[in-house]
Amino acid sequence: MDMDKWTFGLTLMIVGMGGTFLTVWVLSLMITLLKKIYPLARDRGEKKNA
């Protein structure tokens, strides 16, 4: 791909920082989801039943 250095730098900055935030935001959503699916209390309850 042919581009000057400023186009390259700005593109990488915008897409890179945006991509980093997007990925991290998705991860935080996944953590929240995991915590909802496997709450601490349920894990303890399972151990008690076992």
């Binding site: 935030f21 990925t23 935080s28 953590i31």
Partner: peptide, 9 residues
Amino acid sequence: NPKILLLGA
């Protein structure tokens, strides 16, 4: 506290 993960970004 998953929100804090955003500080890491």
